[in-house]
Amino acid sequence: MITRNDIDEESVVINPGKVMNNSNAHEVTKFIATLQAEGCKNVIVDMSQLEFLSSAGVGSILGAVGRAREMGGDIILCNLSKKVLHILEVLDLCGYLTIKENEEAAKEVCAARD
């Protein structure tokens, strides 16, 4: 189950849960797309619970980042485990995604964009 915590009108923190794979990637995609349709430019994805990130989960993130940047915002990933970070490293994505150590640092990115 995806949880949501609004920071302000343009920024939200979501937590996708333990896995992002074929079982729920479409749900995450839809959830973020709905937020973006509501005008939310910045979405912080709190990955503190995330234990498994499959290619479907990566695809969901890439789509969300693409849309966010078209809106002038971003998707900020935070609280990544070493395993999840490793998957993004394997795909050479770390240099192209906004990844922060924790939620506070992620919120600072949002604040700087306001």
Partner: peptide
Amino acid sequence: MFDPRQAIRLKQTNGIGLTMIKRL
């Protein structure tokens, strides 16, 4: 061919799994 910059711009969903497999 997985280009991270293009993958984000094009909101790529296909071919990521195969890239992961080959690199892992």
